[in-house]
């Protein structure tokens, strides 16, 4: 019995370490200038997918990511942790896509993988924090969705029961397949790399990477086809270019402003007793406190 789980993951710039050249003149992100990491909630999503796989015989986990060639890094990382294979959607014509154009491209890739039982993604990516791509992929596939998933309460080949983490509590929902789940950061962290898998998939490469490394892998892919990370272009996913990239994105960046401090004149103190005594007295006298 086959049971196919697609995990949507994104390689993101580490927004905790943003430098000055992070933005390009056209207002899009200059990803090349930033350290790239596995989007944190996508790791939670991968773990949830692996837990489903653990419980369903014959289930497979396929990582799908959209990005530049170097995004193959997160596919390898997923393989080390338990994913069976990965697909990199990469094409210059995807550049500048907003969430709608991105979800269109991803949904077209998922369609190529049909029959798919489950699509699992992180709730949101730290570079945009929009949480839009998951639900939009669900809509494009006409699948039901459950967002903010925290844990699997039960799973079999007919349905999955999920606990959701909401603002002030939890909700447990049961959903049939095929469907989409987005996973909250409060879900179980992703399992570590497995030493055997690390050895097995260390040489997993996209064709582009092989060519760039100019290494003679001989008939590597022929003998060990699992090492091939597929690269899919616009043509491979049979996407309509009208719906892709900047042109296919209804949202446009009108303006980017650097944050300008409207500096107030501050009273600077060292925090000694006299100063703080005076400050607290002043706050009381002016009825700010008390």
């Amino acid at each position: 019995m086959s049971f196919r789980i697609v995990v949507l993951a994104k390689q993101v710039p580490d927004t905790r370490n943003v430098g000055k050249d992070a933005m390009k003149a056209d207002g899009t992100v200059n990803r090349a200038a930033l350290p790239a990491i596995f989007n944190p909630e996508d790791l939670n999503a991968l773990e949830m997918a692996l837990r489903v796989k653990d419980q369903i015989d014959g289930a497979e986990v396929i990582i799908v990511t959209m990005g530049p060639p170097r995004a193959a890094d997160i596919i390898r990382e997923s393989m080390y942790r338990g994913a069976d294979s990965g697909i990199l959607i990469t094409d210059r014509r995807f550049a500048g896509s907003d969430t709608l154009a991105t979800s269109y491209a991803i949904s077209m890739a998922v369609r190529k993988l049909f029959p798919v039982n489950l699509v699992i993604a992180g709730r949101q990516a730290i570079d945009g924090d929009t949480a839009q791509v998951g639900p939009q992929v669900a809509e494009k596939l006409n699948f039901p969705q459950v967002t903010y998933a925290e844990s699997i309460e039960a799973v079999d080949t007919n349905a999955i029961t999920i606990k959701r983490r909401l603002e002030r509590g939890i909700e447990v929902v049961k959903m049939p397949y095929p469907s989409v789940i987005t996973v909250h950061g409060s879900a179980a962290p992703c399992r570590a790399r497995n030493a055997k898998r690390l050895l097995k998939f260390k040489k997993a490469r996209t064709l582009t990477e092989l060519q760039e490394e100019s290494m003679d892998y001989g008939d590597l892919f022929e003998n060990r086809p699992y090492l091939r990370i597929q690269e899919w272009s616009v043509e491979d996913i049979e996407a309509n270019t009208e719906y892709l990239g900047l042109g296919g994105s209804p949202t446009k960046v009108k303006k980017i402003e650097n944050v300008v401090f409207t500096a107030k004149e501050s009273l600077v103190m060292e925090g000694n007793d006299e100063e703080l005594n005076h400050l607290m007295k002043n706050l009381i006298d002016t009825h700010i406190i008390g």
Partner: peptide, 9 residues
């Protein structure tokens, strides 16, 4: 983007 910018969309 890490809060370094304000974007108008």
């Amino acid at each position: 983007f890490g809060g370094n910018i304000i974007a108008t969309i």
